[in-house]
Structure formats: C-alpha cells, structure tokens
C-alpha cells in the first residue's frame, strides 16, 4: 500500500499540479465572492482525483509494473478507494470555510455535491477497471453532464424565486443532504467489491 500511495503522490505532484491549482482557485474565488457556483467544481475535482490517477496509471501501464512487485491485486484496488476517501476528506476544509462564510445552506449544498461526486466515482471506477480508462472516459463525460445539470437544478431551487414554497424545498434538500452522503459511501463500498471482482480477473 505504501508504494502505491507514494506513486500516487509522485503522479499528483508531477502530473496533476494544475488540477490541484484549480481546486484551490475555484474554492478561493467562490468563497471570496460568497457564491456556491465554483465551490462545486472544487468538490467535484477532489472526488474525481482517484479516477484521474487511475487514468494516468492506465495510460502508462503502471498497473502491470505494480503487479510485478510484491503488490497484490486486492491492494491495488483497495488503495484506489482509500485515495477516494482521502480525497473526499480533503473537501472538509472547503465545507468548514463555506459554513463560516456562507452559512449552513452552503454546507448542505456542498454535501449534496460531494455525495453526487462520490456516486459518479463509484460508478466510474469499476467501469474503468473493466474497460480501461480510455473507454470509460466517454461515460465520465456523460456522468459529469448529469452531475452539473442536477446540481444546477438544486442550486436553482435554493437560490432563485421559482414560485415553489421555500419550506418544502428546504425540507427535501435537508432530507437529501442527510441521506445522500451515507448512501454515496455505501455505494462506494459496493463499487469497491465490484472493482475487486473485475480486477482479480483482469489480464495485462
């Protein structure tokens, strides 16, 4: 596991610096302007980090190298999901800052976006293990489109004068926020088991 985390760190630092910059940049402009719109990007980028790492590994066939070393297939998959959890945990400072600057409503919205990001990841990782990162990229684009349209609708419901009773919207968003994150984590667990099953049979 240590070698995989080290490799991810090297990859992140050398290949995804721009990616890290955008996470901080979007969070900063969003908090400065007290607007939700760009915070979602930061949260989404964090959620998608393990997928981008997998993509880079896949394109340079790093998995084959790892499996020549004393690293088991289960460890390779487990590390990817550990990275997902670590990555999601990195969203906590963004939550905290959003709560302080924009109030509890912003945290609710971000929790929903984090859950949606993890859900996309939970669906994407097994597909990437099954079909390879290149083929799964198209599916990722479809899922991201769904992600943005869903967050757009929810954000619209929260912020615009849409004629719907405000109490009812808050009620449903509150319920969603309460259950979405645990549900996304459960799905990530299921996704891990599916990925493991796929990866055990994969040939290099």
């Amino acid at each position: 596991m240590k070698s995989l985390l080290l490799l991810d760190w090297y990859t992140l630092w050398k290949q995804l610096k721009l990616f890290l910059f955008f996470i901080v940049f979007y969070a900063a402009i969003s908090l400065a302007g007290q607007s939700y719109s760009f915070l979602g990007f930061s949260v989404l980028f964090l959620c998608m980090m393990p997928y981008y790492l997998l993509q880079l590994n896949d394109s340079s066939r790093v998995d084959a190298l790892l499996l020549l070393m004393p690293v088991g297939r289960q460890t390779v998959v487990t590390e990817r999901y550990v990275t997902a959890l670590l990555s999601a945990a990195c969203a906590l400072p963004i939550f905290l800052a959003a709560g302080l600057v924009m109030g509890v409503e912003a945290v609710t919205l971000l929790a929903l976006q984090l859950a949606a990001g993890l859900l996309v990841l939970a669906l994407l990782l097994p597909l990437a293990y099954k079909f390879g990162a290149t083929k799964s990229r198209m599916l990722m684009l479809v899922m991201l489109a769904l992600f943005f349209s869903t967050s757009g609708i929810i954000s619209g419901l929260l912020t615009e004068d849409n004629g719907l009773p405000e109490i009812a919207i808050d009620h449903w968003v509150g319920i969603l926020a309460r259950f979405a994150l645990p549900a996304a984590l459960v799905l990530l667990g299921v996704s891990y088991l599916v990925s493991l099953r796929i990866y055990q049979k994969r040939e290099f």
């Binding site: 490799l7 090297y10 050398k14 290949q15 340079s60 084959a64 190298l65 020549l68």
Partner: peptide, 14 residues
C-alpha cells in the same frame, strides 16, 4: 523475482 519486461511500465515522469 526480478523482472524486466519488453513493454516497460515505469512512469515517464520519475
């Protein structure tokens, strides 16, 4: 076991 394969998979940025 030490292995050297034709299709090298060491990441290019290392």
């Amino acid at each position: 076991i030490g292995v050297v394969l034709d299709e090298l998979a060491i990441p290019g940025f290392l």
